[in-house]
Structure formats: C-alpha cells, structure tokens
Amino acid sequence: MPLPKGMLLCLGILMMVVGGVMALVVGMPNKSAPLFGVGLILGLGGVVLLISGLCMAMKNLQAAVPGHFLLHPRTGRRFSPQQALAIQRRLDRIRREMSEDSVISRAPEPEPPLPSTPPPWTMEPPPSYDTVMKSQEHSEQL
C-alpha cells in the first residue's frame, strides 16, 4: 500500500536533513568516508521522496471533478459533484434537442415550375445598330 502524500513529504524532508547533516558534519575527508556516503544516499533518497510526494499532490489537485473544462467555474472553486452532474444532464438534453431539430429540418419548398413558353413580347423591338449610329452622328454635328 503506497504511503499518503503527506507522509512522503515529511519523510523526504527528514531524510534530506539527516543526510545533509551526516554528509557535512560527520563526513570529514579521510576519517569516515562510509558515513559521508550514507549521508549522501540519505539526502538523495529524501529528495526522491519529496519530489514523488509533490507529484502525487499535484496529480490529486487536477482530478477533483472529471469532465469538460466548461464544468469548472472561472472563480477558481470547483462545482460539487451534484452540480456538475446537473450541468452535464442539461448539456446532454440541449444536445439532443439540437440534433432532433437538425433531423426534422423542413424540406426546402419546391420552386414554382417554369412556363413551357415565354410570355409574349409586349414591347417594340430595339432600334438597329445603324439607326443608333446615325442618330449619334446627327446629334454630334448639331
């Protein structure tokens, strides 16, 4: 069974302090090399325990309420599990209604059929090109 994160943090700090004291105070060069090595190992073990305890604490902070990031309020506090469940149900209901609306969308109204023959031309035909050019030349000369 793994140790709780608080116990890991305390044990890591304790081992770092004891290892540091043994390595610096007791471990004088040429007199007691084994105690210096033991102090160094204790200090490094304490660092490892401290880091693993911090990692566990950070992991537990992120997994408080599973779900989408929109289910977390911007105030910094988290919704209670009941609130998160109610919000999730409401979002699901809205999604269902939206999908039903898209499935039952109205078919486009058919355009009225075009008549088989065009309506009769009621206007007089436009003047010919020559007539227009002659009238322009006539207006420029005046």
Rank of each mutant, 00 (worst) to 15 (best):
S102N: 03
I104T: 13
M98H: 01
L49M: 10
G12E: 03
S135R: 11
I104W: 09
S128C: 00
M15V: 02
T131M: 04
G20P: 04
E137Q: 15
E140R: 10
G27I: 09
A63M: 12
G46H: 00
L3K: 01
I13F: 09
A33P: 14
P81S: 09
V21G: 02
E124M: 07
T75E: 13
E140L: 06
P118N: 07
S116R: 15
A23I: 04
M98R: 04
I104Q: 14
S80K: 00
Q62N: 04
L8C: 02
M58R: 08
G43T: 01
M1T: 12
P29Y: 14
L24S: 14
R106S: 05
L114F: 14
L85M: 10
V18M: 11
L54K: 06
L14P: 02
T131G: 00
L3Q: 01
H138F: 14
P119G: 02
C10W: 08
A64S: 04
S139R: 10
P108A: 05
S80N: 02
G20M: 09
S135F: 03
S32R: 10
N60M: 03
P127D: 03
M1S: 12
V47Q: 01
C55D: 01
L61P: 00
P118T: 07
D101N: 05
S32G: 12
R90Y: 14
H138E: 15
H138R: 11
G37N: 14
P113W: 05
Q88T: 10
R93K: 13
P125H: 13
E111N: 02
L70C: 06
V48F: 10
M58Y: 06
L54P: 00
V48W: 12
S102W: 04
A107Y: 08
N30K: 15
L50E: 01
K59N: 12
L11D: 04
I104R: 13
P29R: 15
R74G: 09
K5W: 05
D130L: 03
E109M: 03
K31V: 15
I51Y: 11
L91S: 07
S32N: 15
P108H: 05
T131W: 03
L91R: 12
A33H: 13
W121S: 08
L142K: 08
R96V: 14
E97A: 11
S99I: 03
V18T: 11
E100N: 07
E137D: 14
G37M: 12
S105V: 07
T122I: 10
G53P: 00
I51L: 10
R78I: 09
Q82C: 03
Q136C: 05
F69M: 07
H68I: 03
A23C: 11
P126N: 15
S128D: 00
T131L: 04
G19E: 08
Q136A: 06
S102H: 05
L85H: 04
R77M: 03
L71A: 07
M28W: 13
L8A: 01
L24A: 14
Q62F: 04
M7L: 05
V26L: 15
P110Y: 09
L24R: 15
S80L: 01
M1K: 09
V25Y: 12
D130K: 02
G39L: 05
A57W: 09
Y129E: 07
G39S: 04
A23H: 09
L70H: 12
V65M: 08
V47M: 10
A57I: 00
S139W: 06
C10M: 09
